[in-house]
Design a protein around this nucleic acid. Structure first.
Ligand SMILES: [Mn+2]
Ligand SMILES: [Mn+2]
Ligand SMILES: [Zn+2]
Ligand SMILES: [Zn+2]
Lengths: 155, 155
DNA sequence: GATACATTTTGCACTAGTTGTAAATGATTG
DNA sequence: CAATCATTTACAACTAGTGCAAAATGTATC
């Protein structure tokens, strides 16, 4: 994702307006590798802007997605996760215990798309989802389970 | 997934009851490679059993999932897809135009799990989702777009 | 086959996540 | 600074799925 300043210019250049709400959402997303939900962005946003609405967050995220500045990930955990990391193709480690999502780069540069015969299916995106338990949860799990949290926090 | 007869025995053996509703759901799933939603199974079921409830479908699918007889796929299309194909590890081609989901076997037998260092994350399942356009939709798309259907059909 | 009882089904209310509507607000431009 | 038109907001609506409790019904036992 581009910087808040660059995004602001891009928005204005395409006839969109740069509101304080949008500006703040850009800032919250910049360099955010926590794969936040719309809700978790909203919860940060509402600290500064008590009257902001969740709808605004959804709308801004959709704009950014359409502009290719964020990607929306559906990892089957109830809500969509938003990812400002769109420059390099990467995959995801999803912890089934705490819900955290981490980026993961394949060490070998396998071209997954080439696996599918083009006449059968024209692949536009190939993504691997690794489900399992993160290092933190493995330790916690071996001691007590009560502290495990499903909450998604923004970093 | 096992045959309806085998499933019936398994259910009874584990203290569960085999109702006509469950029996029929087993039959609808057997050899079904359409990756149906709960809703699409319900729509078939209700043809024979006008008073069946969607809740029953969800409950039976959850039982089957817990018994490892079906897998529940979250492909980010709004609703979960259920897959009786659990014997061989396989991946999925998801058509972003018509919503159809097809099985796909990697020709090279890459062990995706081995890619992730065990001390970093303990992988229990690695699945590739290929998104793109199926052969049918590519042809339709080149003529007219109006006929494209998002509906999910069983069988 | 009848009986007893636990399991299951069903209808309905309910939740979470997300989208639609329309009036009020406000960023941009000249 | 005013006009314009995009955007925000509150709120209703919607979809997928779940919780609940009464009624129905498989299954084991006699
Ligand atoms: Mn990511
Ligand atoms: Mn499959
Ligand atoms: Zn974890
Ligand atoms: Zn298609």
């Amino acid at each position: 994702m581009r910087s808040p300043d660059e995004l602001s210019d891009l928005f204005r250049a395409s006839g969109r307006k740069v509101t304080p709400q949008r500006r703040r959402i850009f800032e919250l997303l910049e360099g955010n590798s926590s794969h936040p939900t719309a809700e978790s962005i909203y919860l940060e946003l509402v600290k500064d802007m008590p009257t902001v609405s969740l709808k605004t967050v959804y709308m801004t995220l959709k704009e950014l997605e359409e502009m290719g500045e964020v990607q929306c990930l559906d990892l089957g955990m109830g809500s969509s996760r938003f990812d400002p990391n769109v420059d390099g193709e990467h995959h995801h480690l999803v912890c089934v215990s705490c819900g955290k999502v981490r980026d993961f780069q394949l060490s070998q540069n396998w071209d997954l798309k080439l696996q599918v015969p083009d006449e059968m299916f024209s692949v536009s995106k190939a993504e691997i989802v690794f489900r399992g338990t993160c290092a933190t949860c493995r330790v916690i799990g071996s001691r007590s389970v009560v502290e495990n949290s499903d909450k998604v926090h923004i970093s």
